[in-house]
Write a protein that binds this DNA or RNA. Sequence first.
DNA 1: TCAAGAGATTGGTATAGGCCAAATCTGCTA
DNA 2: TAGCAGATTTGGCCTATACCAATCTCTTGA
Lengths: 240, 240
Amino acid sequence: MEARAPKYHLVMEQIVELIAEQEPGSPMPTERDLAARFATSRTTVRQALAALAADGRIARTQGSGTFVAEPDRVYVHQMTSYSEDLRSQGRQPSSRILEVTHGRALPDVSAALGLEPGGRVHRVERLRLVDGEPLALEVAHLPGRLPRLRAELERRGSLYETLREAYGVTLARAEDVVETGLASPHEAGVLGVDTGAPMLVIRRTAHDADGRAVEYTRSVFRGDRFRFVARSAFDGAEVT
Amino acid sequence: MEARAPKYHLVMEQIVELIAEQEPGSPMPTERDLAARFATSRTTVRQALAALAADGRIARTQGSGTFVAEPDRVYVHQMTSYSEDLRSQGRQPSSRILEVTHGRALPDVSAALGLEPGGRVHRVERLRLVDGEPLALEVAHLPGRLPRLRAELERRGSLYETLREAYGVTLARAEDVVETGLASPHEAGVLGVDTGAPMLVIRRTAHDADGRAVEYTRSVFRGDRFRFVARSAFDGAEVT
DNA sequence: TCAAGAGATTGGTATAGGCCAAATCTGCTA
DNA sequence: TAGCAGATTTGGCCTATACCAATCTCTTGA
C-alpha cells in the first residue's frame, strides 16, 4: 500500500531541509548546483523545485535564480465581500479589466446560464490583484442586454454594483463550485505563474430573486497564494 | 502579455481533439505512438497526458495503456452531511480506518487546536471511498482524553457521531480552508493517483459551543473527481 | 483444459545534454 | 558617471535514451 517515493520527492524533502533556516528572499543554489549536490539530474531537481513553487515556498525567476519565499497567503471568506475581506487583512485589492466582449456562449456557459445553445452573452475578463500583484483571472459571463457594459464597469469597478445600479440586476443567491485546475498558457501569462501550475478554480453561478441565472463566472486563483474559507454552523455536517 | 504556449500544451490540445468523439473506456494510442504521430518526444507527450489525467479525462494504467475517461465527478455541499449528500447523488459512500494513534502534535496541529507545542492528540487516519473507489484521505487530530477511540469509531463509522455519543463532544461550528496541494507518495499510494497529482485539500477546524477547538482535520481529495460546493445568499458578496 | 511461467507491451521514472529566453553583470564609450 | 551593448548566468523547455514495474498475451506442462 505504501507507494515508493520517486527520487524527485526525496530531493524535494532535502531542499526543504536546506532552506529551513533561510530567510525569505535569500538565494538558493542554482539548479545545476543542486543537481551536483544531490547527485541527480537537473530534470529531477526541477521537478522538486516545481512542487515547492506550487506551494509558494520558493520563487523562481528565469535568468536570476531561485529564492526562498514566505508563502504570501490570501484568505477569502465566502460569505463576505471580497474587497472588504482583503482590506480587513490589511491588503489592497484592485482589479483591471482585460477584455469585454459580446458573443455566442460556449456550451458549458449556455448550460450554466440556462440559455439555448449558442445564446449570446457578455463576457468580462478581469485580472484581480492584491497589493499590486496578480492573484486571480476571472471571466464572467452575463446574459441579457447590458449596453455600454465596459464603460459602466470601468466607472464603478465592482461588477455586482454595476449590474445593480446600471442594469437593475440584483443577485439573490450564488453557488460556488471549488475545484483544482492547471494554469493554461494564457492564465499563466497574466498571473505570472508557470503553465501547468496548480490553481484553485471557482465557478460561480448566481441567480436573482426570481431564480433566473444572471451570472456565470469562472475564476482562476493562484494555488500557491489563495485560500478559500467557508464557515458553517453545525447540524451534523461532516464534510470530510 | 500572451505567454508562449509550451509544446506539451499544444500536444494536449491535439490529444483532446483526438479523443473528442471517443467513448469512455476506449483505448488511446500508446505514448510512443502519440510521440511519433505528433513528431515529439515521449516526455512531451507524457506532460500532455499528465495534464489530461489531472482533469480526469483520461485514465492511465502502467502495462495496460491509456484510456479515454469520463470525469466521474463527486460534488459535496458544505452545509450538508457528506454521506447523505453522496447518497442523494446515487453514490455509495464508505470509509476505512487506516490508523489511530495518540502522540505529540506537530506544530501546525497544536497551533490549530490551541494546544501548547507538542501537546498530545489523537490522530485518526481514514480513507474515504465512493462506490468502492478511494476519493479522499483524511487525517483528523482530536485533543483530550478519548479512551478506546478506535473501537468506538469502528462501531459507529461516523467520527462526529462517535465524538458525540461516546465522549460527549458536540461540534457547534467549523471553518474549512480550501486549497490546492500535490499528492505526496503516501497519499498517492492510498488514493491510486500519481505522486504530485493536483489535489483539493480541505483543512477543517471545528469548535464546540464553548469555543474550544475539538477537531483539526486535513482531508486530501482527488482533484480529478472532487468538487466542493458552497452556496450563499447574497449580501453583496463578490467572491470572484 | 487450465494454470503457471516466460516474453512482450506499455506506462513510470530518471539521466544527459542541447538550446532558448530572461535577468544580471561587465566593460566600453560618450 | 551614466548609458548601452555584449557576455554570462540561470531558469525554461525539449529531445533521445535507458531502465524499471505493471499488465497482458502466448506457450508449455500437468
